[in-house]
Simulated scan of single mutants.
Amino acid sequence: MSNISTLIGEIVDVKTSGEVIFRGTLIEVGQDIIVIFDDKNFIYIPLLHVHRINLSDNLDETISDPSETSLEKIESISYRETLLNTKGIFTEIYVTGGKSLHGYITEVRSDYFVFYSPIYKTIFISLTHLKWLTPYKQNMTPYTLSNKDFPANPFSDPLLHSFEEQLKVFEGKLIVLDTQATSMKVGLLKEVKNGFVELTIVNGESIYLNLDHIKSLHLP
Rank of each mutant, 00 (worst) to 15 (best):
Y104I: 03
E68F: 13
T122N: 14
I11A: 10
S56Q: 05
M140D: 11
Y44Q: 04
F90P: 00
K193F: 03
F113Q: 07
S206Y: 10
S117Q: 02
D39P: 06
S183H: 02
K190I: 10
A152N: 11
Y104Q: 00
N194V: 06
T86F: 00
K137A: 11
I21M: 03
D65Y: 11
K148Y: 11
I34P: 07
I8S: 03
F42W: 03
T128R: 09
Q166W: 04
T106F: 08
P135R: 02
E28L: 10
L211N: 12
M184L: 15
T144F: 07
Y120S: 15
G9E: 09
G18I: 10
N210R: 13
L59P: 06
F155R: 13
L209I: 08
K137T: 15
N203T: 14
I74P: 01
V202Q: 07
N147L: 14
G9K: 02
V192L: 06
F115T: 04
L48D: 11
D178E: 04
G24L: 03
P135F: 04
M140W: 12
S78D: 05
S64Q: 13
D32Q: 08
P220T: 13
S56G: 10
E92W: 09
N194L: 13
G18E: 06
V35N: 07
N147A: 12
L133H: 04
S117R: 00
T179E: 02
P118L: 07
L188P: 00
D32G: 03
K131I: 13
T69I: 14
D157A: 13
V176K: 01
I119P: 00
L188F: 04
P158D: 10
I36L: 10
V114A: 03
K215R: 12
S2M: 02
H161W: 01
L209Y: 05
I214Y: 05
N203A: 12
F124T: 02
N139A: 14
Q31A: 11
G18K: 14
I21T: 07
Y94K: 09
S216L: 04
S5M: 02
P66I: 12
I43L: 09
I36C: 03
E72M: 15
G24H: 02
G18R: 08
D60T: 10
N41W: 05
F155N: 14
